[in-house]
Amino acid sequence: MSRIPLYLKERIEEVNKRALLDSFESQKLPRWEKTAITWFALMIFWMVVSASFHWQNILIGSIVTFIVSLLMYDMFTGDIQSSGNVVIKTLRILLLYIPQYIFIMAFRLLESNLKVMKHAIFLDINPGIVKIDSDLHSQTGLTILANSITLTPGTMTIDTVRKLDESKLYVHWIDVETMDRDKAGSMIKGDIEEWLKNIFW
C-alpha cells in the first residue's frame, strides 16, 4: 500500500465506499413488494382489531389498508433483504422466524426480570458502559437488535453508531464481566443477531 500516492488513496477509499453502498442498496426490495408486504401486515392488524369476518368488513379493510400502504410503504419494510420469492419469504417470516423470535425473547425477558429482582435485593452491581460491534448495517435491524438487548438480562443500549461498514452499540451493563469487545459482544448479543440476519441486511 505504501506505493500508492496519498492523493489516490482517498479516491480509492471513496470508490470502495460507493461500491459498498451500491451493494447494500441493491439488496433492498422493489417498491411493489414493499407495498404488498405492508398491505399484508396491515390487513392482519385490521382483522385482529375489527374482529369480524363479514364481507363488508373485509372490503372496507382491504381498501383502507391499501391506501395506507400506498402512502407509507417504506416505513417498516425498507430494510428487508431481497432474496427468493416474495410469497415464500413472507410466509417464512410469519410462520417460522417471528414465532422463533417470540420464543427466544419470552425466556430472555423472564430471565432478565428475575435477574433484576436478584440485583434489587442483594445490590451486587458493578455497572459500566461498554462498546460492542455488530454485523447488521440497516437501520431497522440495528434498532430491533438494540431493543432486544434492552430487554435481555442485565444490559441496556445507550446509543448506536451506524456508519457504512461498521456499526457499534454502546451498552450499559449492570454487571460488567469482561472488557474484551468480542467476548462482550458474543455474551450480550447471544443468538439474536444471527436470527436478525435472516431478515434484515
Binding site: 458493578n126 455497572p127 459500566g128 458502559i129 461498554v130 462498546k131 432486544s148 430487554l151 445507550i158 446509543d159
Partner: peptide, 30 residues
C-alpha cells in the same frame, strides 16, 4: 414491547447528553 425499550434508550441518552455521570468502573461512551 416495541415502545418501552425505545423510551428507556431515549431517557438514558438524554441523561448522558445533559451530563449525568454514570457510576461504575468504565465509561467508554464518554
Amino acid at each position: 414491547a416495541m415502545i418501552n425499550p425505545m423510551i428507556a434508550h431515549a431517557i438514558a441518552r438524554g441523561a448522558h447528553k445533559s451530563g449525568v455521570e454514570p457510576e461504575g468502573i468504565i465509561d467508554i461512551y464518554a
